[in-house]
Deep mutational scan, measured.
Amino acid sequence: EPLWIRPDAPSRCTWQLGRPASESPHHHTAPAKSPKILPDILKKIGDTPMVRINKIGKKFGLKCELLAKCEFFNAGGSVKDRISLRMIEDAERDGTLKPGDTIIEPTSGNTGIGLALAAAVRGYRCIIVMPEKMSSEKVDVLRALGAEIVRTPTNARFDSPESHVGVAWRLKNEIPNSHILDQYRNASNPLAHYDTTADEILQQCDGKLDMLVASVGTGGTITGIARKLKEKCPGCRIIGVDPEGSILAEPEELNQTEQTTYEVEGIGYDFIPTVLDRTVVDKWFKSNDEEAFTFARMLIAQEGLLCGGSAGSTVAVAVKAAQELQEGQRCVVILPDSVRNYMTKFLSDRWMLQKGFLKEEDLTEKKPWWWHLRVQELGLSAPLTVLPTITCGHTIEILREKGFDQAPVVDEAGVILGMVTLGNMLSSLLAGKVQPSDQVGKVIYKQFKQIRLTDTLGRLSHILEMDHFALVVHEQIQYHSTGKSSQRQMVFGVVTAIDLLNFVAAQERDQK
């Protein structure tokens, strides 16, 4: 057995438009009618409502009807409940999964919650491996369901041993009777949507819809739904939504950006999952974080739909894509998950301010006199920076000697690579993860907040409520011999709460 199987392995699926269902090699399930009293909570997966979006479509000038398939009504709160249950049931049916076995899954959280929910009911041990950027709410729900959680670096490539995929496979090879159901490759993922989600949409719309818009992560949702719609409703256009920084969209030119990270969760990847059939997507749109969270908040405030950030991405694209539809036509959007997962993220004004998705003037509360002053007023001194090749031991000596707790790590040209902190280095040394002679590049981390000289002290204040420091950066445009230009970030300084307090105190003292 291989040590790991690539999540982007070539698909062996034989589905073709027009091929009889009787030739399918898979076990198919028909939607079942729910009894009045459910035998367990797993029976509350599927049969989610279709809700008309009344205000947002009109606000953006849509002539067509805009409908939302509300997947956050599933038992675990997301569309991923469907595939989690289906993968477990299919693994039980073919004898792969037996009582007492362990389920391991690399996930952005929602599939993990679905699997942990099913594992709690069915009696399996469950280990979820997820990147650090995923919300604390997801972690809390997983723990409450009895799952064990392993976190991995957000910026690790999918084929790196440190990625959530790599760590999951390492655990599988170490733990007896453990299984990775593997949402990236498992046919049960798109089949769950082909058999149930798509049929529900067709039934709820009486077979009449002209466009379907869905955000894409593993691709199982859009693949399964689109294949069924292509068979039953061939005139329906399928629109895929991919965040900026991901590479799922086609044509490839759409993916060209210097951005590699994004805040919206559960969609987009740096590889093409095996289950994603991009041939059934008629057109791709890219979405960005700001519009995703703005539209998610709009869905909550104006439509009462308590959905997550990827739902915002989907609707932001839908109001663009559906401009081509006329009166009497219908566009369906998939709202994948609930706001429950993001209470401390985009639902929080403070978080939105820190990330730059909300401006101070958007909030009406009274601010102190210094709130709208610029960061450049602080008069920061030149920063202490270190090269990635310097040793951890030497870096600790320098920081202690100069009285700093942290320093930016830059390359020879001064471009920011990340940050090192005294606390992080000492804990890594004590844990045996690094040696004093190791290069400081081994303990770089990139989960820090950046701020510009033109940003306000109010925004800085919000950042420092949650973080010990902020890195002050400025952009530099560099022209190359080819005539092309590129933008790079340079370090201007490091600012802490002490710097802000000293500035405010000094100004008030001078005024007296």
Results as ranks from 00 to 15, higher is better:
residue 416 I to Q: 02
residue 411 D to S: 11
residue 274 T to H: 02
residue 267 I to N: 06
residue 359 K to V: 09
residue 342 Y to F: 08
residue 390 I to V: 10
residue 306 L to Q: 02
residue 307 C to T: 15
residue 469 F to E: 13
residue 417 L to H: 13
residue 481 S to Y: 08
residue 385 T to A: 14
residue 329 Q to L: 09
residue 355 K to M: 11
residue 284 W to Y: 02
residue 351 W to M: 06
residue 291 E to I: 07
residue 446 K to I: 08
residue 425 M to F: 11
residue 329 Q to C: 12
residue 310 S to I: 13
residue 501 L to F: 09
residue 503 F to S: 07
residue 417 L to M: 12
residue 310 S to A: 02
residue 469 F to W: 09
residue 304 G to P: 02
residue 381 S to F: 11
residue 401 E to D: 13
residue 357 F to M: 02
residue 460 L to M: 08
residue 380 L to R: 13
residue 492 F to L: 11
residue 504 V to G: 12
residue 458 G to R: 14
residue 456 T to F: 12
residue 426 L to Y: 15
residue 283 K to Y: 09
residue 387 L to F: 13
residue 427 S to H: 09
residue 248 L to D: 04
residue 501 L to T: 02
residue 487 Q to H: 14
residue 239 I to C: 02
residue 440 V to A: 08
residue 289 D to S: 02
residue 509 R to S: 09
residue 368 P to A: 08
residue 296 A to D: 04
residue 359 K to A: 08
residue 279 T to L: 12
residue 243 P to L: 02
residue 275 V to A: 09
residue 492 F to S: 13
residue 437 S to C: 11
residue 300 I to A: 02
residue 377 E to V: 15
residue 437 S to M: 14
residue 501 L to I: 10
residue 372 H to A: 05
residue 473 V to L: 07
residue 389 T to W: 02
residue 427 S to L: 11
residue 277 D to I: 07
residue 320 K to G: 09
residue 446 K to F: 11
residue 507 Q to V: 09
residue 421 T to Q: 13
residue 425 M to I: 14
residue 298 M to F: 07
residue 471 L to C: 15
residue 478 Q to K: 14
residue 256 Q to T: 08
residue 441 G to A: 10
residue 493 G to H: 07
residue 250 E to M: 08
residue 447 Q to W: 10
residue 327 E to N: 02
residue 418 G to S: 11
residue 257 T to D: 09
residue 365 E to F: 09
residue 384 L to V: 11
residue 396 I to K: 02
residue 397 E to A: 13
residue 325 L to K: 07
residue 295 F to Q: 15
residue 355 K to I: 04
residue 296 A to R: 02
residue 470 A to W: 02
residue 354 Q to Y: 02
residue 459 R to E: 07
residue 417 L to Q: 10
residue 463 I to Q: 14
residue 450 Q to C: 14
residue 410 V to N: 11
residue 349 D to S: 08
residue 448 F to V: 12
residue 503 F to Y: 04
residue 275 V to P: 02
residue 357 F to K: 13
residue 315 V to D: 02
residue 305 L to W: 02
residue 375 V to T: 07
residue 324 E to C: 02
residue 280 V to F: 06
residue 454 T to I: 08
residue 464 L to R: 05
residue 392 C to S: 09
residue 425 M to L: 12
residue 255 N to F: 06
residue 492 F to G: 12
residue 341 N to M: 05
residue 251 P to C: 05
residue 335 L to E: 02
residue 238 I to E: 04
residue 297 R to H: 02
residue 409 V to H: 02
residue 378 L to F: 13
residue 259 Q to Y: 02
residue 365 E to D: 13
residue 405 D to F: 10
residue 438 D to S: 12
residue 385 T to D: 06
residue 465 E to K: 15
residue 281 V to R: 07
residue 401 E to N: 15
residue 420 V to Y: 12
residue 482 T to H: 05
residue 286 K to G: 02
residue 351 W to P: 07
residue 447 Q to Y: 09
residue 430 L to V: 11
residue 442 K to S: 08
residue 484 K to A: 02
residue 460 L to P: 07
residue 305 L to C: 02
residue 307 C to I: 07
residue 327 E to T: 14
residue 279 T to S: 10
residue 466 M to K: 12
residue 450 Q to R: 02
residue 464 L to T: 07
residue 264 V to C: 08
residue 298 M to Q: 02
residue 277 D to R: 07
residue 442 K to L: 12
residue 496 T to S: 12
residue 238 I to R: 02
residue 436 P to I: 13
residue 487 Q to G: 12
residue 358 L to Y: 07
residue 293 F to S: 02
residue 411 D to T: 13
residue 360 E to H: 05
residue 397 E to S: 05
residue 408 P to T: 06
residue 295 F to M: 14
residue 261 T to R: 11
residue 248 L to H: 02
residue 343 M to G: 02
residue 394 H to F: 11
residue 272 I to S: 07
residue 404 F to Y: 08
residue 299 L to I: 15
residue 481 S to F: 13
residue 477 I to P: 02
residue 354 Q to A: 02
residue 486 S to M: 13
residue 466 M to F: 13
residue 376 Q to L: 13
residue 388 P to R: 15
residue 449 K to I: 07
residue 340 R to E: 10
residue 333 V to C: 08
residue 411 D to P: 12
residue 427 S to A: 09
residue 367 K to H: 02
residue 375 V to E: 05
residue 512 K to C: 13
residue 453 L to E: 14
residue 456 T to I: 08
residue 449 K to D: 12
residue 511 Q to C: 10
residue 422 L to N: 09
residue 491 V to F: 14
residue 347 L to F: 02
residue 406 Q to T: 14
residue 368 P to Y: 15
residue 342 Y to S: 06
residue 340 R to F: 02
residue 296 A to F: 06
residue 485 S to C: 12
residue 358 L to T: 02
residue 359 K to H: 15
residue 463 I to S: 09
